[in-house]
Structures are given as structure tokens and as C-alpha cells.
Amino acid sequence: MDQELQKYVKAASEAAANLKLVPPQCAVSFDGNRTGSGTGGAMEFADYRAYRRGDELRRVDWRLFARSEQLMVRRFSQEISPRCDIIIDCSRSMDLYGKNAAAAGLGALFAGSALNAGFFLQVWGIGDSLIKMSAPEEPELWELPRQKSSGGSTLFFEELRAGIFRNGIRIFISDLFFDFSPGELLRTLGGGNVVVLQILGAEELDPPLAGTVTVMDPESGRSKEICVDNGSLERYWEKLNNFQSRYAETLHSHNSSIFFLSAAEVVKNWGVDFFCREGILQ
């Protein structure tokens, strides 16, 4: 990892010092010593927690609701070890507009948060190859793969699918600009309990373009000439919005979540407040 990235990773790691990754409601693994929130006769009731969006309604204690008019979800004690996989997209497109720094930093933030919460952590980098970090607890030592060739990182998705914890929480950090549909991505990542962080550069959110411009895909080398004016920008934003909406709709329907982030904003304070408000971190 170059020095520039290390700087960001270090800052993010420091920001994660007091943070814990909130386990999702279905984070169950039956070979650890952490209480989980699974169901079944082998589980004994442990506690209540407030209802969160996405929680299964069958876990809501309706009698308690009748009494207190508060939606509370039962938590059962269970002997589990929560798992967390952090997958960082290192494709060539992530090298643009500061996205790699934001992705690496977020990866470090969530890695630190997961470790603080007692998660078993795996960190993956996917670019020219799929690399599993040998020291996931040391973000500054991560060797994230750079993509030099013109192939897509989606080539290694099958390999990734085989390596991740399907019952753990999977955090996928990428710009999502690849030829996978949301459903295919979800299936690759095991479906459910997936947190997708889409990072876009400021120039991608608000292209500072006017007139005739050549847009080029740095991975495939394809390009096309476009004429940029207010109308074409409006259409760009509409398509981006539709693109993001499709992802949100698919993920939300599969007990997953997606967050759309600006790389420039993320590297300022790593979105700590945002993630805490969203209940991802505490």
C-alpha cells in the first residue's frame, strides 16, 4: 500500500478506535461464544432490543407491544462467533477521483469496528486478482491488489463466493460500475446481511464537464464522444439515480442495505456519524 493510502487508512483506523460494528439480526454462527439473535427451541430468550427496519416481524414481541406500545424484538442467547467479511473493490475505476483512498479507509474503519465488536474478520481485495489479507487487523499492512490489465474484477467473484462467510456480515466497498446486476452481486455475496457501500468520486456525482468530451472506461479502454450540456447532465443524474434505486430495491428486499457515499466526503470524517445514525456502527 502506498504512503498516500496508508495515511488515509491510518486515519480511518484511528477513527474506528471507539466504534463497534453492530451485528445484524441474523448474524449467527454456531461455533462462537457470542449471543446471537437466532430462533429455535435450542435458544433461550436473552433480551429485548428495539425494532429495527428489516427485522423479521415474527421476532416482535406483540404482547410486550400490547402492554407498552413499543415494538421490541426478542433476542435469544446462543453460543455464536460473528463473522465479518470486508471486500474492497480494487478495480481500475476505483483509482479515479480518490475512491481508492475512501475505499481503503472505509475498509480500515469497518475492520477496526468489527474487531472491536469481536467479529471474526476477513478482508479481501479484488482487482487483478483476489487477495485475502493476511493481517486483516493491520490495515496499514494490507496489500490491496491494483488492477493493471483491462479485465474486470468480476472475474474473481466466484472465487470470492467460495471464500466468504455466508452467515456473517459482508461489507462490500465498491463503485458498483461493473457488469453485474444487483441480484447477481447479492448471490455472489451470499444474499442477506450484506452491506454495500457505493463510493463515487465528486466528479462522478457532479461531472464538471461541458461541451464535447470523450468519456473513457479505464478498465476496458472503450470510449465515446459525448456533448455535455444541461440536458445530458440531467439525463446522467437520472440514470445514476435509477441505477442506485435498482440496487437499493434489490438489497432491501433481501435483508441487506446499501449506502451511497461521496469519496471526498468520506475521507473527511469517515462517515462515523452517518454510520452510527444508520445503526451500522455504535
Binding site: 481500475r92 479515479l96 461541451g211 470523450t214 470510449s223 445514476l240
Partner: peptide, 18 residues
């Protein structure tokens, strides 16, 4: 001038194909 102006993005699909 305009030949040299290149905008890199993988999201070609987001731009007009008019």
C-alpha cells in the same frame, strides 16, 4: 482542445447514447 478532454469513468452506460 476538445480531443484532449477525456473523462475517465467506468460508467459509460450512464452517459447518453443518443
Amino acid at each position: 482542445k476538445y480531443r484532449g478532454k477525456i473523462f475517465y469513468t467506468q460508467a459509460l452506460f450512464l452517459w447518453d447514447e443518443k
